[in-house]
């Protein structure tokens, strides 16, 4: 771990890297993200395999509404931005601003989940359920796994906000804010690929 010890000799380091434990936990989280990426890759591969296996049910062209998935996409992009601002304010030592941006991020996350639930229930009402076809099974599993990650992220963020409010910004809470930020940005990266491989490709193929 030469890189970690080297880092301690540098003149500037953010609070979250100030202890060896903090640095290692952040690195450990990057490893988790790499593994999570592979998990999503398996789901993407399955989905792309079954994209035309509609078994007489509705196809992607009939189901995907440009307006709906664009709202979800822009909402998640903006939430990734506000989450980045939360990390920035945390590094500036502004507890109130950090909490405020985290709350904005959380609300945008809830809006995203709301739209996704609306999309899913709408599809089920049109008769496009998990059991309809291989295409829809893999669609719901892939998009649903992402939605599940976002939901967990929202609950996690609530806990971090509570800790920040009671303990203030220290080496520990700074590391936690940084890691939830990494998680949230990562979910945005996954959504970019969902947006591309599922929704946009669904309009083309």
């Amino acid at each position: 771990m030469a890189a970690v010890t080297n880092h301690n000799n540098k003149p500037y380091e953010p609070l979250e890297y100030s202890t060896e434990e903090g640095s290692l936990r952040i690195f450990g989280f990057w490893l988790f993200l790499a593994a999570d990426m592979v998990l999503f890759a398996c789901l993407f591969a399955t989905y792309l395999m079954y994209i035309h296996h509609t078994a007489g049910g509705p196809s992607s062209k009939e189901l995907f509404e440009v307006k709906d998935f664009m709202i979800e996409t822009v909402d998640l992009l903006v939430s990734s931005f506000t989450c980045g601002l939360a990390t920035l304010e945390m590094r500036r030592g502004n507890k109130k601003a950090t909490i405020a941006w985290l709350i904005v991020t959380l609300i945008l996350g809830l809006v995203f989940i709301g739209f996704e639930v609306k999309e899913f229930t709408g599809m089920v009402q049109e008769g496009a359920t998990l059991q309809t076809s291989a295409f829809l099974t893999s669609f719901f599993i892939l998009v649903g796994t992402h939605g599940c990650h976002v939901s967990i992220g929202i609950l996690w963020m609530l806990c971090i906000i509570a800790q920040l409010a009671t303990r203030g910004i220290n080496a520990q809470t700074a590391r936690k804010v940084f890691i939830i930020g990494l998680y949230w940005h990562f979910l945005d990266v996954i959504w970019i690929f969902l947006f591309t491989a599922v929704y946009l490709t669904g309009l083309v193929l």
Partner: peptide
């Protein structure tokens, strides 16, 4: 946004690169 060039820079980029 993700500050991938901070911390254990080389290891992080290796991990994400390998995952990708």
């Amino acid at each position: 946004f993700m500050h991938i060039t901070e911390g254990s820079k080389v290891w992080q980029i290796t991990a994400i690169g390998f995952g990708a």
